[in-house]
Amino acid sequence: MRWINSRPANGTRLALALLPFVLVLIAYAIGSAERLAENPNDKLLPGLTGFADAINRMAFVPEARTGSYLLWVDTLASLQRLGAGLAIATAIALLLGLVIGILPYARALLSPFVGAISMVPPLALLPILFIVMGLGETSKIALIAIGVTPIMIRDLALKAIELPREMIVKAETLSASSWQIALRVVLPQILPRLITCLRLQLGPAWLFLIAAEAISADSGLGYRIFLVRRYLSMDVIFPYVIWITLLAVATDILLDRLRIAVFPWSELEKGK
């Protein structure tokens, strides 16, 4: 049989999925063991006990000075910024994407502008944001929103434009007004794409969040990583990176589940 036609069974598939993770862990364990054997005080590749200690210290023991559990305080701060940034981005993208997708006048007015804006590297704007909005929460949320909104607008507008013309004409013959077409034909059909688009933007959103936190913050996952970097605390940095990854992966899966639950038809239409 050709390779393209042979598929793994369920058990094999799980084993294959786990394999790269296991290999990375083993490689790390070997490297760490070798370095620790040479120098028990090595900080670069801490062993499992080192990690367990650090995780315990960050997550389950209150910090001496403030009495707070650092990992949870950092997580909460970061997720709040991320959530606010993405919420603003989603609202703007939905509104502008819909309008650009439906109304030729709005498209003529906004499409080239959004296209140009989406080419501005958001990180280059960070100093401007800090200067204009100060070092507080606003500038960090603004960076996330600015970073992901233009691409989301373009994606949603494209999706709306891609809807077959026949469908819009059909709605017109059913007496739909522009407003009704927006509300009941186009909006429901771009909402599943909005969720998918949000999933794809999670990566960039985290990037902008950590960049902003690295420069100025007093809590947050990115702030902590860059703070402990000064002490070469790999035992804290690694768990934090893994924790961020887990959060992002979980959000990604939850968003997809949400799409299937709320828009069951979008799953049926797949691959058509």
Partner: peptide, 17 residues
């Protein structure tokens, strides 16, 4: 187009959602 003239195309005539 308006409600006095109905239409059925070969494809995309119904709303998938």
């Amino acid at each position: 187009p308006g409600p006095d003239r109905g239409v059925v195309f070969q494809r995309y005539s119904v709303f998938p959602h």
